Structures are given as structure tokens and as C-alpha cells.
Computed example of a mutant assay.
Amino acid sequence: MAADGFQHGAFQHTLRTPAVFAGVGVHTGAYTRASVHPAPVDAGIVFVRTDVTGRDNRIPVTGKAVCKTQLGTVISNADGVTVSTIEHLMAALVMLGIDNAVVELDGPEMPIMDGSAEPFVRIIDRAGRRPQAAARRFIEIRETVEVRDGDKRAALKPAHRFEVAFEIRFPTQVIGRQVIDMAMDEFTFRREIADCRTFGFVHEVEALRALGLARGGSLENAVVIEGDGVINPEGLRRPDEFVRHKALDAIGDLYVLGAPILGRFEGVLAGHGLNNQLVRALLARPDAWRLRTFAEEIAEAV
């Protein structure tokens, strides 16, 4: 059996107790209260808009529920109810081994917190984890699936563990070309990825706000680049924080598949849009993957 820490053995997990938090949405600027609750076996991750009445306010997370990917991942249900910017919480949930949870919020966008997944890791740690009496399912990649858009590329390939490789290139000295390639488990995620923040450029801010985006963005929740430098007074948390955050986003974007992955993700200049194209390409190729559990292997070992 693969022994990556994030898998927490062969059984499903949920939260032990609810966890409550609040903050502004990076794009809407709206202040939102949210809470993550325990959920039963096989429930998956479900978002609930408590501010919506008169129509279905539940949005189960699936690959096909993703309806928009401009600067974040947005999911919707058949009644058109949406929740945006879910990727940082989703990354924390999958890498800390949470299979089932209900996320309630009273607004259209998840709080951005500090722009990384670290606050969500702390929230999950505070709530605790509870094992459940059902086998955890993994998506085992059996054949390579790849999507391209010009020089951008994203792929899932067979591997015996979850691996993440990413490459970015930006024409500013503070970023340039950055590459990471890691075997990804809970320990590595906590130590190397979780605290890496989203980033943007000063010259893009006005254009984004004209589109109704980045209204809640600030130096408190994003790394902001001007020219060849970072204007945040505290600077960077890591020299390659930018590519590590892109990897964080990809981990969260992949968890819309509903199960952790046994395979290798490779992204080159990819973003939320290409990540979701890859998710949909995988779903369209049932020959390229299978759902797998390890409960029987553990029983045989005992």
C-alpha cells in the first residue's frame, strides 16, 4: 500500500468538530462568515450558501460543477447558485485527509484569509479529524492524460504516490523561471506549500477591478509585484513562493474530482482553467484511471 501521510490509512475521515472562521473575498470584497462541519461517509465535500433561500443552496463539489476559472475556481449547481475561490480550502482538505465535510458560508465567495492554505490547515487542526467506517477511494492514474493550450500544459501520469511538478515563467526578475518537483504528502504540504500566497501585479489591479475582480485584494492577502520587486513590507515567505502557490492551486483544483490522486501532476504555465480542462479530460477517459481502495490490502497484512 502507498504510505503517503495525507492518505491517513485506508479509511475515510471527516472533521471531529465544526470550525468557524470569517474574512473578505479577494474578488468580491464581501465579508463572509463560514464554517466547516463533519459529514457522513461518502458525502464528499459540499458547499452550502446559507444566505440563499427559495432555491437549492447546496453545491456538491465535482469536476463538472466548476463553471468559471478566471483567477479562481468557481462551482455552481443546477439552480445557478455559486461559490467562488474554493481552491485553497480544497487543497487543505485533501492534503490533511478530509474526505467528507459540509462548508457553510453566508456569501458568494470563500474568505481569502492570508492568500494561502495555512489558515485552513489551522482551522482543520483545531477541529480535529475523525476516522469513519468506510474505505477511502483513490483515483489511480493508469495512463497519461494531457491538455495543452499553446505553450501551456497540464498532465496526469501514472505514479505510485502523489507527485506535483510545476513550472512558471514571468518577465520580472523577482519571479523569472521557477520550477518545483515534489512527492506530495501531508508533511510536505504543511512544510513546503501551505503557507505560499497568491500573487498579482500592480499594473493589473485596475483592469481587474473594472471587471469586478480583486475588490478585496490587499497586501494582507496577496503578494503584490511592481516592476522587479515585491511591495509587501514583509517580503516573500520563500524565494520561489510563486511557483509553490501555483502548485497549491493545482492540488485544490484536482480535488474537485472527489478523491485524492495516486499519480503525478505536471503543470507548465498552467492555471485554474487548464487544471479544470485536465479534470474534465480525465473524466472523459475512464480507461485512463480507476477508483482504488486499500482496505483489503490492510486486512490481508494483518
Rank of each mutant, 00 (worst) to 15 (best):
R238Y: 11
P131N: 07
I86H: 09
N221I: 07
K157S: 15
Y31W: 11
I123F: 09
L219Q: 07
Y255M: 10
L156W: 07
R55G: 03
D228G: 11
R237S: 03
A154W: 09
D4I: 11
V174R: 09
V94H: 05
V81F: 13
I139L: 13
A183F: 12
L269F: 02
L156Q: 03
D240Q: 09
V24W: 06
V103N: 04
K246C: 04
N77H: 08
A247E: 01
S116D: 00
R190F: 08
F162R: 04
R130T: 14
P171V: 06
A65P: 01
A259P: 07
I45K: 04
F265N: 01
A43S: 14
V66Y: 08
A284N: 10
R264T: 06
A91D: 01
T73M: 01
H13N: 14
V81L: 09
A30Q: 09
I175E: 06
R177D: 09
V243E: 00
G128M: 12
R58Y: 06
F199E: 02
N100Q: 05
R130F: 14
D253I: 02
P131G: 12
L93Y: 02
T53I: 08
G97Q: 13
F201S: 09
V66M: 10
G72E: 07
I180N: 04
V26F: 01
P131E: 08
A65G: 10
F265T: 03
F170S: 08
L96S: 13
V179F: 10
F170P: 00
R197A: 06
V243G: 01
I86A: 04
R153L: 13
V302Q: 13
E234P: 00
A133Y: 11
E296C: 10
H160R: 15
D253N: 02
I141Y: 07
R190T: 06
V81H: 07
M1W: 14
Q178H: 08
E297Q: 15
A22F: 01
N276H: 15
V302C: 13
T293L: 08
D56H: 10
A43W: 05
R169C: 07
L105E: 01
I141V: 13
G217C: 04
L291H: 11
E104S: 06
A155S: 14
A78H: 09
D181W: 03
F170G: 00
A250Q: 04
D253G: 02
T293Q: 15
G258T: 08
P38R: 14
E192D: 12
L262M: 13
A117R: 11
P286H: 13
P119T: 01
Y31C: 04
N57Q: 04
F166R: 03
I175P: 09
G216E: 04
D42W: 10
A281K: 10
M182S: 01
G128E: 14
D240C: 05
N77T: 01
Q173T: 10
T188M: 14
E143Y: 08
L278D: 07
K64Q: 06
G267M: 05
P260E: 10
A155C: 02
R215I: 07
V174D: 00
R16M: 12
L278G: 08
R197V: 05
